[in-house]
């Protein structure tokens, strides 16, 4: 088991390296750098001015060297002193003396770089936004997991019954409703000032400071709904399979009541598969978060991703991708390990 986890962590690090390199490569293509220079400087820069903007900042060094600097394996880029004797460098923060700056400043040293959009340290921004998104995710989980499991178990315990048909149709409908459709429908029904019920607010901006039922319900429901259908269908399938097992038939024949069969005999075995599915839902939830945060104007991690990507903020974008890769791969690892613990029939060598 220890070896298995070790190997998985190794693969995880390798994946993260490859992924960040891809992101690094794509964001450092010359047209992207040109756009960066123009948004930082001014939009009417000539080609020569663009080059003279990029060169001292170390953007024009060869890609592997830049990547190693970002990682913190090579010393950070330092420019030649310009006519005023000022030195620009990767590790020299604004207002810092060039002499005091550390030589290495990469991810390995805990330095995530400086965001070109927000003019702040990336580490701080990402942490703050992740905190906001964590609140959102927690609420989503609290709604989604119990909801999905209840629907799935109710539908799967009597396969083919009318209750099953109704709940299955419901879960198929929710999987067919992407967040940007259900969000629009929810706003139209519950928040519109024209014809809607006006129960909730169509914007979650105020929820960043103070979460209330009124401003947080719609975003949470929008993300949860898409996940509910999928998890419920998996739970239903696994429940329906368990209900046809021999030991359930034995229990029925010896006269155990239906409620007891479901609660005491079937449920534990039926919940093994949904556990994996719930864990593997995290990457999908990340997508939902991006859409919902844009739609409801909640400035969390997803909003940050959109800001970083649309402004080609290289360091921020890399940090965002590292975080999301770690989330994806860690949940995969947890789902594999948890599966072994829940299902003693499976052993990992």
């Amino acid at each position: 088991m220890g070896l298995f986890i070790l190997r998985r962590v190794g693969v995880m690090i390798l994946t993260a390296l490859c992924l960040t390199f891809v992101v690094f490569f794509l964001t450092n293509l010359y047209p992207n750098l040109e756009k960066l220079a123009k948004t930082q400087g001014n939009f009417r820069m000539t080609d020569a001015e663009v080059a003279s903007f990029l060169e001292p900042r170390g953007y024009l060094e060869p890609l592997p060297i830049k990547y190693a600097q970002w990682l913190g394996v090579l010393p950070g880029h330092v420019s030649e002193p310009d006519e005023n004797g000022e030195v620009l460098g990767r590790c020299i923060l604004p207002g810092m003396d060039a002499e005091e700056a550390p030589r290495f400043c990469g991810v390995l040293q805990g330095k995530w770089g400086l965001s070109t959009v927000f003019k702040e340290e990336v580490g701080g921004i990402v942490g703050k936004r992740l905190g906001l998104t964590a609140k959102l995710m927690l609420c989503v989980m609290l709604v989604m997991i119990p909801g999905a499991l209840i629907i799935g178990v109710l539908a799967g315990m009597r396969e083919g019954s009318r209750l099953d048909r109704t709940l299955s149709t419901f879960s198929i409908t929710t999987t067919a409703t992407p967040e940007y459709v259900s969000g629009v429908l929810f706003i139209a029904i519950f928040a519109s000032s024209a014809v809607g019920l006006k129960w909730f607010k169509g914007s979650a901006t105020s929820a960043m400071d103070d979460i209330t039922f009124v401003n947080f319900t719609l975003p949470v429901m929008t993300i949860a709904l898409y996940g509910i259908g999928y998890i419920a269908r998996m739970t239903r399938a696994s429940m329906a399979e368990v209900m046809t097992a021999q030991y359930i038939r034995t229990a029925r024949l010896k006269g155990v009541s239906f409620g007891n069969i479901v609660m005491k005999h079937a449920l534990r075995n039926a919940l093994i598969a949904p556990f994996t599915v719930i864990m593997l839902q995290f990457p999908w939830l990340l997508n939902g978060v991006v859409i919902v945060e844009t739609l409801f104007n909640y400035k969390g991690f997803g909003w940050l991703l959109v800001q970083a990507a649309s402004n080609n903020d290289i360091d921020l974008l890399l940090a965002v991708s590292v975080v999301s890769v770690i989330v994806v791969l860690t949940t995969q690892l947890i789902s594999d390990i948890g599966y072994v613990y829940l299902n003693p029939r499976i052993r990992i060598a």
Binding site: T15, A309, S324, V325
Partner: peptide
Amino acid sequence: AFPVILLFYL
């Protein structure tokens, strides 16, 4: 492992 939206943006 890439978030789909990030990939689209890139």
